[in-house]
């Protein structure tokens, strides 16, 4: 067993052990914190496909996170107000059902990623960063100025959405749903990294000329990667909105995009469990240092600086060594 596998196993163990302890010690707030970490990790797993595997430095992933959030907010707010979303040409009603909300979140954020990708993948490097940032800002200002769904104030959903057979209001049960998603998506991501598509995408990041010369089209590979990436981050957004029972334009802000990127970079770019380590670490120091000083992000900045300067593979790289 390599050190990276041991580390990954330890992280998975922690994902089960921490909430189990919290349940035993009757610390529901710890479970909420863990849920937050798991959802952030899921969002970052999404970004890691574009950033780590595809080499696409997207500073606009909050768009997908926010679209997922608003998919939940819009569907659930119509359901709780008993108003249809639209009546003509056919009736669409809101819903409080998580599976339907997830499906809508994934499809909507995937579609958004496809559209953004079509335009932004004509560029690369710093221009790609700027275009994705610009799309993020457009989505943010659109949401703040659209009064139907709360505008700047956001949307509150009074009761958490339902999942057949579970009481999602019980923190540990909602945590279970989020953890199941994270583990499933990590398993899919692991398969993706070893698949034909993963091999081609990985090469397209390193030597696009070679990939063209063997008859493949790097921008198409990257577009598909961005759609998968956006869809996963959108799913995380729907779960995040359900965790808080609230969605606001903050989820679409560029700071949110930056935070998701920080999870990936602190944890380890292109490492399977990098986003998990990064998001877990972030939530931990947000909680601990946030209690010590309201300027806790100074310390986060310091950590980020150290990781970028000295630990090229992020936390996973520092603990488990260079990637094989």
């Amino acid at each position: 067993m390599t050190r990276e596998r041991l580390l990954n196993a330890a992280l998975v163990l922690a994902l089960f052990a921490v909430p189990a302890w919290a349940l035993w010690a009757d610390e529901p707030f710890t479970i909420t914190l863990a849920t937050r970490a798991v959802i952030f990790a899921l969002a970052a797993v999404g970004l890691n496909i574009a950033l780590g595997l595809g080499g696409l430095v997207s500073l606009g992933h909050a768009v997908f996170f926010g679209i997922g959030g608003y998919a939940m907010g819009i569907l659930a707010s119509h359901a709780q107000n008993y108003t249809p979303i639209m009546e003509a040409p056919f009736l669409i009603e809101g819903t409080k059902s998580m599976p339907i909300i997830w499906l809508v979140a994934v499809l909507a954020s995937g579609l958004a990623a496809w559209l953004i990708g079509l335009l932004s993948l004509r560029t690369s490097g710093v221009y790609f960063i700027m275009i994705t940032l610009a799309f993020g800002q457009m989505a943010y200002f659109f949401a703040t100025s659209w009064p139907t769904y709360g505008g700047e104030d956001g949307l509150s959903i009074y009761v958490r959405n339902g999942f057949p057979g579970l009481n999602t209001l019980v923190p540990i049960q909602f945590y279970g749903i989020c953890l199941a998603w994270l583990l499933l998506v990590l398993a899919l991501n692991r398969a993706l990294m070893r698949s034909r598509f993963g091999l081609a995408l990985n090469a397209a990041r390193q030597v696009p000329d070679r990939v063209r010369a063997v008859g493949l089209d790097p921008p198409r590979l990257q577009l598909v990667a961005l759609v998968l990436s956006g869809a996963i981050t959108g799913l995380a957004g729907a779960l995040f909105a359900d965790l808080n029972r609230f969605v606001s334009p903050t989820m679409l802000s560029w700071q949110m995009s930056g935070e998701i990127m920080v999870f990936v970079i602190i944890g380890g770019v292109a490492r399977l469990f990098g986003p998990v380590a990064g998001a877990g670490f972030y939530v931990l120091i947000e909680h601990w240092l946030g209690g010590v000083s309201e300027y806790w992000q100074i310390f986060l900045g310091l950590v980020l600086l150290l990781v970028v300067l000295f630990g090229k593979g992020g936390l996973v790289g520092m603990i488990a060594g260079a990637r094989k």
Partner: peptide
């Protein structure tokens, strides 16, 4: 690297699950 060439020749990069 050699697999990448074979993959290009196959013209089928859209496999997401099966290990190469």
């Amino acid at each position: 690297n050699a697999l990448l060439g074979a993959l290009g020749a196959s013209g089928k990069p859209w496999h997401f699950f099966a290990p190469v």
